[in-house]
Simulated scan of single mutants.
Amino acid sequence: MTNTWLPPEEYVETIARATSYACLYFTDNRGRPVQLKAAYNTETWQWPGGNMDHGETPWECAVRECLEETGIAFEGEKKLLGVQFISRRGHDWPTNHVGFIFDGGTLTDDEIAGIILDPAEHTEFRVQTVREWEGIMTPVNFARLGAVDEARRTGTVAYLEC
């Protein structure tokens, strides 16, 4: 059997595609997650982050989006906490979605007080315990929060599929 090499533009048509996002997971000095409420959906709480721009790495995206969405110019280390694969099988979106969740570390009270939200993207932010977040988040998003929080506490990397 011989392999037939396809030109890149033809080969790409034969493999899975995905859009991608990246974000930073922050907690306060008591270990409570800091999350932002999405302006586009009042049930969605998320971390500073967003979809990657063309040519951008996941890390570059997370840092850029954090600055745009909170005013925080993050300069910490590159530490991956989790990867999320979101299947779009059976949905009206044409590709899967893959996310990279990085550890943003601990924010001081002053850094939290200095968060400046982009009102086009987020309407508020909160700092609560993981248990308190469970009561207001969707089950899928809460599962992501729990897995990422555990990954940070245990020094592991979470892998999620939904």
Rank of each mutant, 00 (worst) to 15 (best):
T14I: 07
A147T: 00
G114C: 12
D53L: 14
T154R: 14
D118F: 03
L160Y: 03
F100D: 01
G49R: 11
N51G: 03
C23I: 00
A22Y: 01
H54Y: 10
T42M: 08
L81R: 07
C23S: 12
S87M: 05
L80D: 05
R89H: 11
R64Q: 02
V98L: 08
V148C: 14
D92K: 11
R144N: 10
T156G: 11
R89F: 12
F26T: 03
I115H: 07
P94A: 06
R131Y: 05
H54F: 13
L67E: 14
V140C: 00
E75T: 14
T95N: 11
F142G: 04
A147L: 13
W47H: 14
V98K: 03
T138F: 02
E9V: 08
E65F: 05
E13G: 05
T4P: 01
C23N: 06
T156S: 15
R126I: 08
L36N: 02
V148H: 05
M1E: 06
E60M: 02
H97M: 10
T42S: 13
Y25T: 04
N41A: 15
K79A: 11
N41P: 02
P48F: 02
T129L: 09
E77Q: 13
A16D: 11
D118S: 12
V98M: 06
V130M: 06
T42F: 04
F100G: 02
D109P: 03
L67T: 06
N41G: 09
V98R: 03
R64S: 01
E150D: 14
V83I: 11
V130T: 12
S87T: 14
Q84A: 08
R153N: 13
G104N: 06
T14K: 10
F142H: 09
P139G: 11
N96G: 07
P7D: 12
R88W: 01
T129M: 10
R30I: 00
P139M: 11
T44W: 15
E13H: 05
D103I: 03
V148E: 01
H91L: 14
N41I: 08
V127W: 13
T57R: 07
W47L: 09
N41K: 13
C66E: 02
V157S: 06
D92E: 11
E69G: 01
P119I: 05
F102C: 06
A73G: 02
T108N: 11
I72M: 06
T44I: 15
T44F: 15
V157T: 15
N3G: 08
Y40L: 09
A22Q: 02
W5N: 10
K37Y: 07
W47E: 15
W47F: 15
G155N: 05
E65V: 02
P58W: 09
N96E: 15
A113K: 13
C23Q: 05
T19N: 12
E77V: 13
I136S: 10
D28L: 04
H122R: 06
T70R: 01
R144H: 06
Q46A: 09
G71Y: 13
P48D: 05
R88I: 03
E77Y: 00
L145K: 04
I116S: 13
A113Y: 03
G50N: 02
R17Y: 01
R152I: 15
Y25S: 04
R152Q: 15
Q35A: 11
H122M: 07
G99L: 02
A39I: 05
M1T: 08
D103W: 09
P58Q: 10
T4W: 01
D92W: 05
G55I: 07
I115E: 01
E60S: 04
G31I: 14
A16Y: 00
